[in-house]
Amino acid sequence: MAQYNISVNGEQHQVDAPPDTPMLWVLRDRLGLTGTKYGCGIAACGACAILLDGAEERSCQLPISEVGSKKIVTIEGLTRDGSHPAQRAWMENDVPQCGYCQPGQVIATAALLNKSPKPTDAEIDQVFETHICRCGTYHRIREAVKQAAKETS
């Protein structure tokens, strides 16, 4: 076990954990931030996506020892009230079905818009080809990403 001081959603947290503990389980089991989901454990589905200094990161592959002073934002911290353009677009387009993968999809959208405020279809494809939605909400996701981009710019 080792002591880590990490920044999550604007707050500092002291966590005592083995260095290889993935942030996914730190967030979920230690900090009670269960909005970040477990889907595969091998970075293949995107359900566990978080923002690390504003970029998308798979928390199942991010050991706590590698976080350092980088700032983590989870779905709970994106906004408290669901007012991020991606969150609003998701609700308006009624994207979720079971909803389980959607926090990861929303986080991926936030990261994409940070990098590219007006993403092309090719950029959207590139981000979301590594995210699975088992309910098949893909074309609503594309619509929602575009709407969120419109509202951001």
């Binding site: 979920r28 009670g32 931030l33 269960t34 909005g35 970040t36 989901k37 477990y38 989870t74 779905i75 709970e76 994106l78 906004t79 408290r80 009230d81 669901g82 991606a86 969150q87 998701w90 609700m91 308006e92 009624d94 994207v95 979720p96 909803g99 389980y100 959607q102 926090p103 929303v106």
Partner: peptide
Amino acid sequence: TNRVDNHDVVTGKAIYGMDVP
């Protein structure tokens, strides 16, 4: 009609089996 759980889903508040505190 949009589904009743949308807000909880997109803010990470929706509670699935593995999220039960």
